[in-house]
C-alpha cells in the first residue's frame, strides 16, 4: 500500500509566535519550527498501517526550506521517503491554495491512502483533509480515532460530539486523525541516524503542475487585514453575598445577556 502522510511544520507553541508586519502572514523565521503535533499521530498511524499491511510511507510537506527538519523527524520515526514541496510562489497560500498545491503533488506521486492530522496549531482551519478529498475525487474520512483496513475497504470511527460515527469507504481515500487514535512513537536513535540517508525529493510548482494563479498570498480567498495583541483580561467582578448574592449574580448575568 502506498501511504502518503501530509505533515506540516508549525512554530513551536512553547515559544512566542508572531505575524509578519510585512504581509500579515505567519513569521516562520521568528520561532523554532516543530512538527505539528497532530501530524505525529498521522505518521504513527501510517507506520502502523504499513507494519500491518505492508507498503511504503511517503512524507509530504509543503513549506519553506527549513521544513526539512520536520521531514527528518517523520523519517526518523520510520517513514521511507519524502517529498518536499517548496517554492516562493506558495508563500501565503490559504487553505484553498494549499489544498490545490498538495492535491496536484499527490496526483503526481500517487497514493492509495492519504493521512493528515485533523488540524494544525498555527492556522487551525481543520479543512484541509476535506478539501484534498474533494480535489482528488476520493472519499474523505475525517476526525478518525480508529482506522481499519481490509483489502480495499477502509473504515474509521469518526469522533462526534455524541460519540462516534462508523464511516466506511473504498481506497483510495483521505483520512484525518485526532489525538485519540494512537500514541506516537519516539524516533529511535537508529531511525534518527538513518533518516539522513533516506531520499527526499524536492518539488517546485512547475514539477507538480500547480496552477500559480490558485496559490500564494495574492491568490488567497481569505486575507488577514489586521492583527493585534489580545488585550489583557480585565479584573473580574466580585459579588459579595450579603443575603442577596443570588439576586446580584442574576443581575450580573442578565446585564451580560446570559439570562
Amino acid at each position: 500500500m502506498n501511504i502518503v502522510v501530509c505533515v506540516k511544520q508549525v512554530p513551536d507553541t512553547a515559544t512566542e509566535r508572531k505575524l509578519s508586519s510585512k504581509d500579515n502572514t505567519l513569521d516562520r523565521d521568528a520561532a523554532d519550527g516543530v512538527i505539528n503535533e497532530l501530524c505525529e499521530y498521522a505518521v504513527e498511524e501510517a507506520l502502523k498501517i504499513k507494519e500491518a499491511h505492508g507498503g511504503e510511507v511517503t512524507v509530504l510537506t509543503m513549506g519553506p526550506a527549513k521544513a526539512t527538519d520536520t521531514i527528518r523527524k517523520a523519517l526518523a520515526m520510520g517513514a521511507d521517503k519524502a517529498v518536499h514541496l517548496v517554492d516562493d510562489a506558495l508563500h501565503g497560500s490559504d487553505a484553498l491554495g494549499t489544498s490545490h498545491a498538495l492535491a496536484q503533488t499527490l496526483k503526481k506521486i500517487g497514493f492509495d491512502l492519504v493521512i493528515l492530522g485533523s488540524e494544525s496549531t498555527d492556522a487551525r482551519t481543520g479543512v484541509l483533509a476535506a478539501m484534498l478529498a474533494e480535489r482528488l475525487g476520493t472519499p474523505q474520512l475525517t476526525l478518525a480515532r480508529k482506522v481499519d483496513i481490509d483489502g480495499s475497504a477502509i473504515s474509521i470511527e469518526r469522533v462526534t460530539d455524541y460519540g462516534y460515527d462508523k464511516v466506511t469507504a473504498t481506497l483510495p481515500a483521505v483520512v484525518s486523525v485526532v489525538e485519540k487514535i494512537n500514541e506516537p512513537r519516539y524516533p529511535s536513535f537508529k531511525g534518527i541516524m538513518a533518516a539522513k540517508k533516506k531520499p527526499v525529493q524536492t518539488f517546485g510548482v512547475a514539477d507538480a503542475e500547480i496552477d500559480t494563479a490558485q496559490v500564494g498570498l495574492a491568490s488567497s480567498w481569505s486575507e488577514v487585514t489586521e492583527f493585534a495583541v489580545a488585550p489583557p483580561r480585565a479584573a473580574g467582578t466580585i459579588v459579595k453575598d450579603e443575603g442577596d448574592g443570588g439576586a446580584k449574580a442574576a443581575e450580573f448575568l442578565a446585564s451580560k445577556k446570559f439570562i
Partner: peptide, 12 residues
C-alpha cells in the same frame, strides 16, 4: 540535525 533530534527525543 541528528544530535538535535537525539536531544529532543531524549528530552521528550
Amino acid at each position: 540535525g541528528e544530535e538535535r533530534a537525539i536531544r529532543d527525543t531524549v528530552r521528550a
